[in-house]
Structures are given as C-alpha cells and as structure tokens.
C-alpha cells in the first residue's frame, strides 16, 4: 500500500466515524450534545494540525544549530592542507 493510499484510508476512516456520529447514520439515537460536538470536529482537527505544524517548524528553525566552530575548524584545516600539499609537490 502506497503512502498516498494509507493517507486516503486514514482520512476515510475518520470521515466515516464523523459522519456516523454527527448524522446518526446507524440510528443509535445518540444524545443531541454528542452530535453537536462531533459536527465541527474535522475543522478543529485541521486547525490544530496546522498549529502543530507551524509550531514544530518554527521551533526547529529557531533551534537549528549554527556550526560556527565547525566552519572555523575547517578554515584552519584548509590552510594546513594547502601548505602540506604544496610541500608534497601539488600544483594548484
């Protein structure tokens, strides 16, 4: 099963449960408050997914390490390498 199908399957299951509860498709005679709570759920779900995504990406951007040390180390090693290679007879 491709990832696309897995997603479609998941979305279909959620939508089915949602429709069952909010339109009382199985005549379970659920109390009215249940049905009223279920009705806007997909929208809440979407909004919270969006918030979660933004927060996660924002946090990860903010905590993305800047490797100043690594850059400095590399620059020094480049100098060392150039000198050593010249000694070994490399014509750059």
């Amino acid at each position: 099963m491709t990832k696309l199908l897995q997603w479609l399957f998941g979305v279909a299951v959620v939508l089915a449960v949602w429709a069952l509860v909010s339109f009382d498709l199985l005549d379970l005679s659920l109390p009215r408050p249940y049905r009223e709570a279920a009705w806007p759920m997909p929208l809440y779900l979407l909004v919270s997914l969006g918030c979660y995504s933004l927060a996660t990406v924002g946090y990860r951007v903010a905590t993305f390490n800047d490797c100043e040390e690594a850059a400095k180390e590399l620059q020094e090693q480049i100098k060392e390498a150039r000198e050593d290679l010249r000694k070994k007879g490399l014509k750059m």
């Binding site: 951007v61 993305f64 390490n65 800047d66 490797c67 100043e68 690594a70 850059a71």
Partner: peptide, 9 residues
C-alpha cells in the same frame, strides 16, 4: 549536535 553553517533564516 548536527547543524548547518552559512544558512540564513
């Protein structure tokens, strides 16, 4: 400890 150097926002 992974990361990048030389990337802007």
């Amino acid at each position: 400890n992974g990361g990048v150097y030389g990337w802007d926002l």
